[in-house]
Design a protein around this nucleic acid. Structure first.
Length: 854
RNA sequence: GCGGGCGUGGCGGAAUUGGCAGACGCACUGGAUUUAGGUUCCAGCGACCUCGGUCGUGGGGGUUCAAAUCCCCCCGCCCGCACCA
């Protein structure tokens, strides 16, 4: 019995594709284009099977669209700047560049063995000056357009490493690597004005109809639009006003206090003369920002002693507190508290003995019966205790209060967004240098075009904590391009999300002297199908959307949305294992040993099997790609990744699963290379007179073509695989010796091979070749279903009595209703239940079901 | 707390979108082949059963000739956001 030799076969066809440049593409305006892209990887080391699921999906789409006649752009590159390279440098004294390029070489080789249709001539690595020089230019253009700016902001500062940490890198208030207590520091950082585009970014989500609903919702929540009003509260005894944002200007008459964030300028000034307040603020700043800390933290306030006047009545004076729950980053960093109609304000008021004045009355409740206990009333109702607002509903009162504020010059209606400007400064080495120079005389001076790119120095040391660029003896010292005097380079580098925000544009013309060629971008963009993990739902996907708008504003291009279609795939999971000491074990370190079947480690000690989790290095529940490709080949791995679960759901990788696919691959191989009937030569005509089995097979073939195409269009790969397997099951049983059956078998095999082609391209090519074709399967058009053959000539109709199935009958397709009815009534089971009575009603759904109601 | 999703055999999942629940597969069981294991082939595989049926898609109710699918209530799990003014 023959076995499929995947090793030889896969290498052979990969060489042929490469030699024929099958997947290298160029602009071709005579054909419709299709841009398929999978989120490019960070070159972290080696790929495991979990990494290649989305590349496989993308490849199926690319090959399928190619067969449909599209000019398909399907590129691959490396998101190559980032912290792990620097950590490797610190840990094992390798240069980040060497570490990165070595990983790229390894991973490129792994991807090539998967037989993916990438145009490798378009490969790019973001850490290459040929790539990042263009984003330095973009940054300078953003600066000129006012889209990039420098601002003091409060950041997480690790005092040991001397660097800013992202929120994710702060664990329980301590730096993730040093364990040092993280401080909040006011630092000057570069920001991009993403908030300028908040409304457009939010509204345009509505047009992204090929994006998952959940991603659009996540972005919408992240942008977070609030409609309300800014209200100015004059401070008593000072020629100054405190500006507050609220969505509940209707409840202004219920105000009983104002509160500002600990880092609000007013708080800072008040603290100057009040050591106790200064200590309170310091305490707030020490508090972590993690969820757990916030959850546990008590709502605390400190009365500054200052008073502010009510905008509608100067006679009303309100105390101004500093409160730990007010965020400097949201709104104006100051709020007014209306305890009766906001739970948090109510808790605060009860704690500090502030008055609680209800101003919204629930429907059907008399004012004298309405009191606020421990629960604030936040529903709709009628305004009372509110002078000119009395009697209005909440929505009307918001409008009326807003108008009055504007008339009085005491405020204005406005919309604010949760979205904050994107801080892009990082005190890191392995990133793109920010191309500006700080000059004592000229201020901030952009690096002139002629001096781009600003490249990273190679001779850096990671021995001292802090930013290696800032510590470098010479790199930062330059002459000012403006005045020629002594000046210093910016030593911060750009957030690595900067690189991934435009790489899809660079793929359109990767070797251009410009960032990209506008006409090539105009041809290829937008990406028609983007595929990646949902973890980038807001970060990368939002930044990229912003970037397109920013580039458009700077005249680079005229496309607004980068990704017309988005698919977020599920994770690949695997069982986890731990030994007696709680150490994680790799799957290959665990064996099921007889006689008891208890899993054991290499030393024979029992192993605890943990829960299914996403494959990750830290839990060691990874299955290496090289081992799988070595043992089963790329096609078997690809088919498994596609067939076992719906693509948007998690997939459990198991030995049994991959084994099952491997058995099927061999069965298919034998079925076609050792057919049960002699096959006529390619292109042989199919007879009109066929055996019933052969005729049924033809129907199945064409129905499969129709449904698999539909499945691929809708990303239902698992279903498509099931359909093709159904077809091959049927073909395997087709062995009648009647003339013409062989030709049908050939049609069936060719169809199965062509439908499987995008999923198992090497096996597809080999079988196509063995079926006697000199052409490449990769160059074949997608098969077309014959509409006459996609419908059966007969229909199996279910017969129900009172909605319960009592039998089935097979009738010619579209049989007369009367004939169908008669046949149904004649069924013995139906006769028995009728007991001689006539049916009260008979419902007939043609070709499907007959329900006899008694 | 707010927002979203999901719940179907031992497991992954199908179900022409209201019309034969469990396609396709994994695991398992029996048989054949094999010196044996593996492979391969055949058969079985939701539960109960008096073999005629009865029940069955998280639970309860409803609409309908007909519900996994639509409506209402409840339970459970997952994800996102969250001191958001």
């Amino acid at each position: 019995m023959s076995r499929y030799n995947f090793k030889e076969t896969e290498a052979k066809w990969q060489a042929i594709w490469q030699e024929r440049r099958s997947f290298n593409v160029a602009v071709d305006r005579s054909r419709p284009k299709y841009y398929v892209l999978e989120m490019f990887p960070y070159p972290s080391g080696k790929l495991h099977v979990g990494h290649v699921r989305n590349y496989t999906m993308g490849d199926v789409v690319a090959r399928y669209k190619r067969a449909q006649g599209f000019n398909v752009l399907h590129p691959m590159g490396w998101d190559a700047f980032g912290l792990p390279a620097e950590n490797a440098a610190i840990a094992s004294k390798v240069h980040p560049a060497d570490w990165t390029y070595e990983n790229i070489a390894t991973m490129r080789g792994q991807l090539k063995r998967m037989g993916l249709t990438y145009d490798w001539e378009r490969e790019l690595a973001t850490c290459h000056p040929g790539y990042y020089r263009h984003e330095q230019k973009m940054f300078i253009d953003f600066l000129a357009a006012g889209l990039a700016y420098r601002k003091e902001s409060w950041v997480n500062w690790d005092p040991v490493d001397q660097t800013v940490l992202a929120n994710e890198q702060v664990v329980d208030g301590r730096g993730w690597r040093t364990g040092a207590l993280v401080e909040k520091r006011l630092l000057s950082q570069w920001f991009l004005r993403i908030s300028d585009f908040a409304e457009d970014l939010r509204q345009a989500l509505g047009d992204l109809d090929r994006w998952p609903e959940r991603v659009r919702l996540m972005q919408e929540n992240w942008i977070g639009r609030s409609e309300g009003a800014r209200v100015f509260f004059p401070l008593v005894g000072q020629d100054e006003k405190l500006e507050v944002f609220t969505t509940r200007q209707d409840t202004l008459f219920g105000a009983s206090f104002l509160a500002v964030a600990p880092n609000h300028p007013l708080a800072q000034r008040a603290a100057a003369g009040d050591p106790a307040l200064a200590e309170f603020i310091a305490e707030c700043n020490r508090m972590g920002t993690s969820e757990a800390v916030i959850e546990a933290a008590e709502k605390k306030g400190y009365d500054t002693g200052r008073r502010a006047r009510h905008p509608f009545d100067p006679a009303i004076e309100l105390p101004v507190y500093v409160a730990n729950f007010v965020l400097m980053e949201y709104g104006t960093g100051a709020i007014f508290g209306c305890p009766a109609h906001d739970q948090r304000d109510l808790d605060f008021a009860r704690k500090y003995g502030l008055k609680v004045v209800p101003v919204v009355l629930p429907k059907g409740v008399a004012p004298e019966d309405f009191t606020i206990g421990d629960t604030a009333y936040v529903e709709d109702g009628t305004l009372f205790n509110s002078r000119f607002l009395d009697g209005l509903g909440v929505a009307e009162a918001k409008r009326a209060a807003g108008e009055r504020l504007e008339q009085l010059g005491a405020g204005q209606r406005s919309i604010i967004y949760r979205l904050r400007d994107w801080g892009v400064s990082r005190q890191r080495y392995w990133g793109c240098p920010i191309p500006v120079i700080h000059c004592a005389a000229c201020g901030i001076v952009p690096v002139p075009d002629s001096a781009l790119p600003v490249t990273l120095p190679d001779d850096v040391s990671f021995d001292t904590p802090g930013n290696p660029l800032a510590l470098h003896p010479t790199w930062k010292h330059v002459d000012c391009p403006g005045c020629g005097g002594k000046a210093e380079r910016e030593t911060d580098t750009l957030d690595t999300f900067f690189e991934s925000s435009w790489y899809f544009l660079r793929f359109c013309s990767p070797r251009s002297d410009k960032a990209f060629e506008p006409d090539e971008v105009a041809y290829w963009m937008p990406v028609d199908q983007y595929i990646g993990g949902v973890e980038h739902a807001v970060l990368h996907l939002l930044y990229s959307r912003f970037f397109m708008r920013a580039l458009r504003q700077c005249g680079y291009l005229d496309v607004k949305e980068p990704f017309a279609g988005l698919f977020t795939q599920g994770m690949v999971c695997h069982q986890t294992y731990q030994d007696e000491d709680g150490n994680w074990l790799f799957p290959e370190e665990v064996t099921l040993q007889d006689p008891d079947g208890i899993p054991r480690d290499a030393r024979g000690r029992p192993v605890t099997t943990g829960r299914l989790e996403k494959m990750s290095k830290s839990k060691k529940n990874v299955v290496g790609l090289d081992g799988i490709v070595e043992e089963y080949g790329a096609d078997t791995a690809r088919l498994y990744l596609l067939s076992d679960s719906p693509p948007e759901r998690d997939l459990e990788w198991t030995d049994e699963g991959i084994e099952g696919i491997w058995r099927y691959v061999n069965r298919l191989w034998r079925m076609i290379t050792e057919p049960a009937l002699p096959l006529p030569p390619p292109g042989s005509a199919i007879l009109d007179e066929l055996s019933p089995a052969a005729r049924a097979a033809r129907h199945a073939i064409h129905r499969t073509i129709a449904t698999v195409g539909d499945d691929l269009d809708k990303f239902r790969f698992n279903r498509g695989v099931a359909r093709i397997r159904e077809l091959t099951n049927l073909l395997e049983a087709l062995d009648d010796k009647q003339a013409g059956t062989g030709a049908v078998l050939r049609e069936g095999f060719e169809t199965a091979v062509r439908l499987f082609g995008p999923m198992m391209p090497h096996l597809g090519e080999e079988l196509w070749h063995r079926l006697g074709h000199a052409t490449l399967l990769a160059d074949q058009p997608w098969p077309k279903a014959d509409p006459d053959l996609t419908v059966e000539d007969s229909a199996t109709i279910a017969v129900q009595v009172n909605g319960k199935l009592r039998g089935t009958m097979t009738l010619p397709r579209d049989a007369e209703a009367a004939a169908a009815e008669a046949e149904a009534l004649a069924l013995p089971a139906v006769q028995r239940l009728l007991e001689g009575r006539a049916a009260r009603k008979i419902i007939i759904v043609p070709n499907r079901i007959i329900n006899v109601v008694v």
